[in-house]
Design a protein around this nucleic acid. Structure first.
Lengths: 110, 110
DNA sequence: ATAACATATGAATGATTGTTCATATGTTCA
DNA sequence: TGAACATATGAACAATCATTCATATGTTAT
């Protein structure tokens, strides 16, 4: 429990916090960036759309693994799919993603 | 394996990818944002520096839990500590964090 | 020195998650 | 229709992680 003289600050901050649901969603969104396989997939997609097998080749992992991770990226609206014949071509949903990526890079290279 | 006619694209992307270590570090950095308790802690710190017990009060969790999470935030250079008497006051390391936070919000509220 | 308080940390636990294997679904071409 | 290929998905396993309890460390005041 916070001290008496801090109670007002605590109260004010509590009241101005975004609602819990939003912050939970936000954490889920960032969770997607928190895996090196997914980061590498996104990074590969900065250039252009790619088929699943190309992505698997680039990141050096099983097709199955990549497919599972692409599903997660899809669920969080980070990538979109386009079917062309036997292949699925994935691309980034918008340019927010690259910006967030770059801000992260800036931070770790500080 | 990618098709023959995709081999050159795959090769080009592979060569232009940031090195694996950097992307691994980047994933670790974003991993910190991927937990709702830590997000809420960071969010509370947007306003001003706070002691551990104040933070625990705001996020409604045990002092111990908050302390553990603050250690993780410290390890990734997201927060800094200042000792004052019996209390430790935590604050955000820089304003990158709030920007990344806001870009994430933008995305989920699209 | 001791009591009271604030914070940090180790161990244990339950839950979540990434990867793989095997297989199913979907698509094209003969 | 059937063979060949690309992708998706379910089950299983190992590994990681967030939380809690109990306790240690650090600080102040008596």
């Amino acid at each position: 429990m916070a001290h008496e003289d801090h109670q007002d600050i605590v109260k004010e901050i509590k009241e101005n916090m975004p609602d819990a649901d939003t912050l939970f969603e936000l954490a889920d969104f960032f969770k997607v960036f928190g895996d090196s396989t997914r980061i590498r997939i996104m990074c590969a997609l900065f250039k252009k759309e790619l088929s699943v097998c190309c992505i698997a080749d680039i990141v050096g992992m099983e097709q199955s693994t990549v497919s599972h991770q692409l599903r997660i990226l899809r669920q969080e609206n980070l990538v979109k799919v386009r079917r062309e014949g036997k292949q699925s071509y994935y691309s980034l949903e918008d340019e927010h993603i690259q910006k967030i990526f770059e801000m992260g890079l800036e931070h770790i290279l500080e």
